[in-house]
Amino acid sequence: MKILVCVSNVPDTTTKIKLSGDMHSVDLANVQWIINPWDELALTRALELKEASEGKIEKVTVMLVGAKSAEPTMRKALAIGADDAVRVDAEPLDAYFVAGQIAGAIKDENYDLVFCGIESSDYNGSAMGSMLSEFMNIPSVSSVSKVEMDDDQIVVNREIAGGFEVVVPELPFVAIVQKGITKEPRIPSMRGIMMARKKPLKVVEASGLEALTEFVKYEPPQPKAACKMIDADNVAELVDLLHNEAKII
């Protein structure tokens, strides 16, 4: 069995987002890049499954669509424990473009299970994994909060309003995962970092697919009015403000 984990390279969550002078782009100089948090959870869970599978899962591959500058993020994924990595050499223009590129790059690879994070923390698209499953014409389960292996089956929990469903999909399928699938993302060990340098990182050319959307302009959020402070001994004032000023209760 082979698992593919799709990762994206995103600015660290605590990064201050600076816009370019003309507001047409985000100024990415001096940004610290990380593996998208949901993808990192997905990778961690894929590795846990592999380790517990007694050899049934032979390989965990990470896949990224991006320029060469994204390779440190891929090396980090290898250091965490992925066996090999593939980069499609193209700027990730939009989710449709990325999903189409990945589908093209893996069409002869026969992955049994594909993991994608439910969202990317940069453009908050929430679309890539489901698009990939459609390009591949295979089933998908989204909002996955648990993944287990049961003999040769994969069993997942899908979060629904107020609870969850246990779902058994036919393989291959795409699992679009969220919080809960593993407790914490794995941190690379020193040995992992040394080994990552020697692990294969393949670069493939992009196909001629075109993006369907384009980000044309950015705006900073509206500045927020100062917080109105209320004395801790006068909670009644809070109730009054929420009722008469904010008119929210």
């Binding site: 449709y96 679309a127 489901s130 679009i176």
Partner: peptide, 24 residues
């Protein structure tokens, strides 16, 4: 909407119809 179900369905519809999508 931007519900979990929409996250699962809208991207598939996007690929089927080659329709660009904006989430959220």
């Amino acid at each position: 909407s931007n519900s979990n179900t929409s996250k699962a369905l809208a991207p598939r519809v996007s690929v089927k119809l080659k329709a660009g999508m904006v989430f959220a």
